[in-house]
Design a protein around this nucleic acid. Structure first.
Length: 425
RNA sequence: GGAGAGGUGGCUGAGUGGUCGAAAGCGAACGACUCGAAAUCGUUUAAUAGGUAACUAUUCGUGGGUUCGAAUCCCACCCUCUCCGCCA
């Protein structure tokens, strides 16, 4: 959430910053509401002050005289009543304004960082570096072909269980998934991250707090009988974990790593990536998350990104690092680095981790602060996949495929998986 | 799901209509004593919003209501705990 005060005091600069996203935003209607609200605030405060004084006076008068029903006293009470009417009228107005302002501001995305490349869409993203040698040969199999021939997963049988875009992992496929989760959790938790295993169901407030609501309710699955949603990413429960807290600055940064299943409706993406493990309604992910001192989030962003990178390096998977342009940034993010893994079958890089610095955007929505120089300040939140498990498996299958149809398991993963190759059953 | 109890400052806990933003204790900070420390004694110590400040307002789980005035009364909701039932 953007700072209401900023919109009230400098709407033009707010619009200018937001327009970096490649769309026009009109914040003047909100600006007007905030001015109106401010005036009402002051008026209410004045009236309350008067009415409080009067109440005290009445209390004193009653204490002095035994007559609770004197004409004088009744007049004072009547006066007090008038205050009450006026105040409650104004409060009603204010409540409406507050709701409206809150609703409007919640729908505004975060400011893009000035360091992010300016651009309109995906095509303007900037490649920062590549790592490893991308496997480029003809007649390479896709991971779903490999998965089928090695019997690692089955999507068509899974439609009987739920519907398309779900998967059932089988045998070595299931084992590989499990190995990857443990592998990633171990590396990160040995690297200073505290492991969390949060609930998969989250309430509306939590989704609001990290920015998925109110704008993207179409993207999540909702439970019909409760105010609970299937969490689209561990970012949601982790943000909510420290909601409404003032964190001692000496504890910062707080670094969490969490494994969680993630559920996304993928509305609007039918027809894309319909096969394999790339785009599913349910997938597993190991998520990295930092609560950072606001003055240190730029360095934190580099660290979290390189922590995510380290997994790809250990697994020896070629990847590139991409600086997401202003027009392609997620709603809550001010700057995002994507890690894209090489998928030889499509001869392209695919997103496997998205590392974002949300600055104080989520912290303001969730009210997470720290005390610096005796003043409360919103902390900065950062998140990054470390990594998406399904896509990592796809990359291992495709990059590790051998001419005899087997798949070589990256050395670092062997202790977790238990063997060097996945062979035909 | 049934029955009961409860939610007050950093913590424990008192407070059932009027200077209550809230006793007391613990904790913490500062000072005295001490070579230093412990102990003891004294003083201070809630948060948030607005304002340069003086100050003003709000906050006793949340939201409404009654009243000139609510931590205190009324209504609804949320959460926690205990017992019973069910259950991986």
């Amino acid at each position: 959430m953007l700072d209401q005060k900023l919109i009230r005091e400098n709407p033009t600069s707010v619009e200018k910053s937001l327009s970096l996203r490649g769309k026009d935003f009109n914040v003047f209607p909100i600006h007007k509401l905030t001015i109106e609200k401010k005036a009402i605030d002051i008026e209410i405060s004045n009236l309350q002050s008067e009415s409080k004084k009067l109440s005290k006076l009445i209390g004193l008068e009653i204490g002095k005289s035994l007559n609770n029903n004197s004409a004088e006293l009744n007049n004072l009470k009547k006066e007090g009543n008038e205050y009450r009417m006026k105040i409650s009228e104004l409060e009603e107005k204010k409540r409406k304004l507050d709701n409206q302002i809150h609703k409007e501001i919640s729908s505004l995305p975060n400011f893009p960082s000035k360091d992010a490349p300016t651009g309109k869409d995906e095509s303007d993203n900037v490649q920062i570096k590549t790592w490893g040698d991308p496997l480029k040969k003809d007649h390479l199999k896709s991971h779903w072909e490999i998965g089928e021939s090695l019997n690692l997963f089955d999507s068509s049988k899974t439609t009987k269980i739920s519907k398309s875009r779900f998967i059932t992992l089988i045998g070595n496929g299931a084992k590989l998934e499990r190995a990857l989760i443990n592998f990633m959790l171990d590396i990160h938790s040995n690297n200073g991250y505290l492991e969390l295993m949060p609930p998969a169901l989250v309430n509306s407030e939590s989704l609001q707090g990290s920015g998925q609501l109110p704008k993207f309710s179409n993207e999540s699955f909702k439970c019909s009988n409760d105010d609970l949603w299937l969490s689209p990413t561990a970012e949601v429960p982790i943000t909510a974990f420290n909601k409404n807290e003032i964190i001692d600055p000496s504890l910062l940064p707080i670094k969490y790593v969490a494994y969680s299943p993630c559920f996304r409706r993928e509305a609007g993406s039918y027809g894309r990536d319909t096969r394999g493990l790339i785009r599913l309604h349910q997938f597993n992910k190991v998520e990295l998350y930092w609560f950072s001192n606001p003055s240190k989030s730029l360095e934190a962003h580099k660290s979290i990104t390189s922590d995510a990178e380290s997994i790809l390096k250990k697994l020896n998977l070629p990847f590139r690092l991409v600086d997401i342009c202003t027009g392609d940034l997620g709603f809550s993010s001010s700057r995002t680095f994507d890690l894209e893994v090489w998928l030889p079958s499509s001869k392209s890089y695919r997103e496997i981790s998205s590392c974002s610095n949300c600055l104080d955007f989520q912290a303001r929505r969730s009210s997470i602060r720290t005390k610096i120089d005796k003043k409360n300040q919103y902390i900065h939140t950062l998140n990054g996949s470390g990594l998406a498990i399904g896509r990592t498996m796809a990359a291992i299958l495709e990059n590790g495929q051998q001419s005899d149809g087997s798949v070589k398991i990256p050395d670092a993963l062997v202790p977790y998986f238990g063997s060097n190759f996945i062979k035909t059953p």
